[in-house]
Simulated scan of single mutants.
Amino acid sequence: MHPDRTTPLTFGMLVFDEVEVLDLGGPFEVFSTAGRLARTADDQPLLRVRTVAATRHPVRARGGLRIVADHTLDEDPPFDVLVIPGGVTTAVEADADVVAWLARRRRTAALTFSICTGAFLLAATGALDGRPATTHWEDQEELARRHPEVRVRTDVRWVDDGDIVTSAGISAGIDAALHIVGRLFDEELARRTARQMEYTWTR
């Protein structure tokens, strides 16, 4: 475990209408499961996930799953890692308030993690300019066309570029989330988390 990590690490996850369920649920399960396995000295989860939405209204994910977020953008909760799942992101990209919030919180987060088409939201903030990134294989050409300043990778399941990690589509977010657990804590916790989930981790 990271030697100076003695207080819980909080993951702030954006949710929005038409978010992809596994883009959201896969990393959520990884981080929350790791938090059940790794505890603080007073037996609190060392990893916590908080969801954030534009409003208090329930979010309808792809397929109809309804989600009520823990916080709104206006509440602006504190967190250490910003998580941006994908889905149908067109309306979110056009929402200047959400993009501005992402841009600001990306600068203050220790790490930003996008899954699938969440890369489009991250690219909209300018955070991927001149940097390598990936997204779902169906959307890689569009990301390159709409954001030519991004160095789109087509040969990997995720890209770790220091303070930004981007992953390919849907289930690749689980692999990248396990990589993040291994990077922020240790490989043993990542392996234990994958085993607890009965998931075969593709590294």
Rank of each mutant, 00 (worst) to 15 (best):
A109K: 04
I170S: 13
S171E: 06
T166V: 12
V99M: 06
P78V: 08
P132N: 05
R107L: 10
R153D: 01
A127Q: 07
A127N: 07
I84M: 03
T166L: 02
E138L: 14
T112Y: 02
V165C: 00
I115S: 00
S114T: 14
V83F: 08
A127H: 09
D161N: 08
G162I: 04
R151E: 15
G126M: 06
E93F: 08
A91E: 11
G182R: 09
V165F: 11
R157Q: 11
G182F: 03
D186W: 03
D161P: 05
D155K: 07
V68R: 13
I174E: 02
A176Q: 02
V165S: 04
A94V: 12
L178T: 04
I84Q: 02
E142K: 13
V150I: 10
H179W: 15
R183Y: 12
A172C: 10
A124Y: 02
T72H: 00
E75P: 06
T90C: 04
A144R: 15
D163M: 10
R183G: 03
T117S: 07
D155V: 07
D186P: 08
V99G: 06
T154I: 05
T125F: 01
Q140F: 04
A133E: 04
R183I: 05
A127V: 10
T125H: 10
D80Y: 09
V99Q: 04
A91H: 09
R146C: 04
D163C: 12
D163T: 15
I84F: 01
A172K: 03
G86Q: 01
A144I: 03
D95L: 11
D74K: 14
L178V: 11
V156S: 11
L128S: 12
A127P: 06
T112M: 07
H136D: 14
V92A: 05
T166F: 01
P148I: 10
W101V: 05
P77S: 10
R66L: 14
T125K: 07
T72C: 09
E142R: 15
D74I: 13
D155A: 10
D95T: 11
A100C: 13
P78A: 15
D175Q: 09
V150G: 11
P78T: 12
T134V: 03
D186F: 06
A124P: 01
A94R: 15
A94M: 13
D76V: 10
F120L: 00
T89N: 10
P132R: 14
D74C: 04
G86S: 11
E142F: 03
T117P: 05
L102V: 01
E141R: 09
I180H: 02
T117F: 00
R157I: 01
L121H: 02
L82T: 03
